[in-house]
Amino acid sequence: MRPFYYERAETAVGAVASSGPGTHYLAGGTTMVDLMKLDVQRPTRLVDISGLEGGRYDFIRWDGDALRIGALTTMAKLADDEQVRRRAPVLSDALWLAASPQIRNMARISGNVLQRTRCPYFRDTSYAQCNKRVPGSGCAALDGGVTRHHAVLGTSDQCIATYPGDFAQALIALDAVVEILSPDGPRSVRFADMHVLPGGKPDRETMLKEGDLIVAFSIEDAAFPRSKYLKVRDRESYAYALASAATALRMEGDTVADVRLGLGGVATVPWRAKEAEASLRGGPLDESALERAAQIAFAGATTTEENAFKVDLGKRTMVRALLETARMEG
């Protein structure tokens, strides 16, 4: 690991004010310390934000159907929150199905949504080619690499690395908003707008600018007792998704009044299947409607020989998740 300065920030304002080139925030450290050991992340200075203002950014607060969650809340705390489990189970599911208990105790939800891809060519610096790690160097995955885990949606000819997280799919499905403290003051962005497609600049993963500090996530309408996260993986626990679906439903009789669909394990960024949602809204959740929605969701898929299976797996995961969600009590 390369040397760095370590500093503890006492306040959010202080943390933002001390930002600068080469400086990264450190909270749970589960991504940052791992990638520093691998020499993928090379901060010259870490500002420890894990204990800001005596836990001021560690909270879960309901106001009617609106939910606001502090950025430094641990994954474990949110996953185990009784009210969240009951009123918005998709949020809880997406967390307890992720990582390990130890990591969930350490990782904060703001770092969780910013975790980096598990693409082996990104994580292993002995590969010279990685447009995400070294802009313009090429892509070892597309250049004959092993691509079984790579993305089929939102890819570019520069990068097909999968966005690895689970919780982000739940946030995007529920229209979450990210509250940011930046050097210019506070601002909010839709979670759906935070991550950016790889396109020609895979090294740029979010629209966050230097010094931006996520302070909270808010969901205006989070009351989706009929919601869930379905995760399909090679190993039953402690593994990244091959395909996953975050679903939330509101039914009026047999008619879909509202449906939300986030897809994981298959895309380069947290993925909202808006067109598939639109095809389901106002109709029944029957076999032909679900099949059509799945076709729409994966219509733009680009595959390699090794990851082509993710299209069928992704469709089946999404259909199964919707059917299981429909059977939940509303």
Binding site: V33, L38, Q102, N105
Partner: peptide, 25 residues
């Protein structure tokens, strides 16, 4: 790298991976 759990300790009563925790923290 936080994948095996052999380094697990309790920090303020919470099981934690000591290999991904900076001592300064």
């Amino acid at each position: 790298h936080g994948q095996c759990g052999a380094c697990t300790v309790h920090v303020d009563g919470q099981r934690t991976l000591s290999c991904l925790t900076l001592a300064a923290q």
